[in-house]
Design a binder for these strands. Structure first.
Lengths: 243, 243
DNA sequence: TAGTGGTCTAGACCACGCT
DNA sequence: GCGTGGTCTAGACCACTAT
């Protein structure tokens, strides 16, 4: 069974690319999501290439989200991607939407720091420095997004204490300050995860990240918070009604 | 100058990751965008590691868009990312916006095929199969996005002929059919480029792609086209004012 | 202990750009 | 021809999982 798959060493296409393509083609039919692939050693023998070459092929598929590798266990066809529409309208927070569907959403506040970003301070109409909250959102114990939220501490005193380990910021604002927070503007970009983000979100370095930045306002349209979300690209999409 | 950079072989962090971090840190200060980095061989000697290990470090930075490598020439600090806000409101097409700023926008129609996607057919209220236009958008001769656009051929007969090699679809629709096309809904996701997309957009495989799907409507709010853009993540961001 | 994927080395050859 | 990055091999060692 050597070289049976028809690898071409002089086609200009690297062997690991050909192997990745060959494996991907088999995912439609021969493999089910969750199936274990042959081990690196077995694949290396099957394709008659070095183990490293197989590893590079798997690396391509891992970065594309088609394969998951676990050290000591094996390589697996990735589970079908669960995409959630975070419909942009109104006041529906992810915590509420997902909670209604029976998912456990936990928001963990990592910490609060002073941040004197002049642009954001102006947008929020603050007099002094802002408080920046860093938090991670987990859905069913899986990390989904990293969020930075900037508030004016003069407008929301003691928020750093009140928001500690409570899932929903929306709830805290409503119950403690009587403020109904809504999304106002959002800017979307596709980024690649750096080492820190990758570790927090448990994805490979350089995985796609959907970045959503913008402003949140109260019921009178007054800006009360600046937000930056970094969603795992394999878990979230964002829907918007325009104009 | 061997091992001078303080690489730690027993920290659990792979050497290529440490090297990537070390290089990235130097980009703020020691290097300017466009500067050539030392060659792989020089870096290997500097860090006292194998060439392959350096290559893996550069690979991380390339995938994150921080470094560009050119075979036969060298590795270079990537040029500053030009991000363009495609403000979502109204009828402003990218062609118009960029043209007004002095950039040459060319839209090349790759081809037209029949596509009987039942979901899209229903959304467009079409009776029969749709026409799917595949096109690539170039800004200053650089590929920026791959677009698929679905039309009802009964509503826009001969569009496949009229839109060949004309930059602006908006213009064609306005001049030939008297229709003012606007964006209606958009869904954003972050994906990883597959081999085909990567080649067309001239980016590495698995680079971040900002996918925007949705509907376009005429001045009466009637759906006339379904659209899917795949933007290079390093070239485009999308801004939206929410309701 | 055996099997898995992850990293690293030394060395080789290739494709490409420049001079 | 020479230097560049890209690919590939053979072999080694490691970290982790399961039994």
């Amino acid at each position: 069974m050597k070289g049976v798959a028809g690898l071409n060493r002089h086609s200009g296409v690297p062997l690991y690319g050909q192997i990745a393509q060959d494996l991907e083609a088999q995912f439609a039919g021969a493999y089910e999501p969750g199936d274990r692939l042959p081990s690196v050693a077995e694949l290396a023998e099957h394709y008659a290439v070095n183990r490293l070459t197989v590893h590079e092929a798997l690396d391509v598929l891992v970065r594309r989200g088609l394969v998951t590798t676990v050290r000591g266990k094996g390589s697996f066809v990735a589970l079908p991607i669960i995409r959630w529409d975070v419909r942009a309208g109104q006041d529906a927070s992810l915590t509420q939407v997902m909670g209604a569907r029976g998912h456990a959403v936990v928001n963990r506040v990592l910490g609060v720091v002073e941040d004197a970003d002049p642009g954001l301070t102006g947008e929020l109409g603050a007099a002094g420095a802002l408080q920046r909250f860093a938090s991670i959102r987990y859905v069913d114990d899986e990390p989904w997004s990293i969020t930075s939220t900037w508030f004016d501490p003069d407008r929301f005193p003691r928020l750093d204490v009140l928001w500690r380990d409570r899932s929903s910021l929306h709830q805290v604002l409503l119950q403690e300050y009587g403020v109904q927070m809504k999304r106002s503007t959002r800017t979307f970009a596709a980024l690649a995860a750096d080492a820190t983000e990758a570790e927090i979100l448990r994805v490979p370095v350089a995985s796609p990240i959907l970045q959503a930045r913008g402003l949140n306002v109260d019921e009178h349209g007054v800006a009360i918070a600046a937000v930056e979300h970094r969603f795992r690209g394999d878990r979230i999409q964002f829907s918007v009604e325009l104009g």
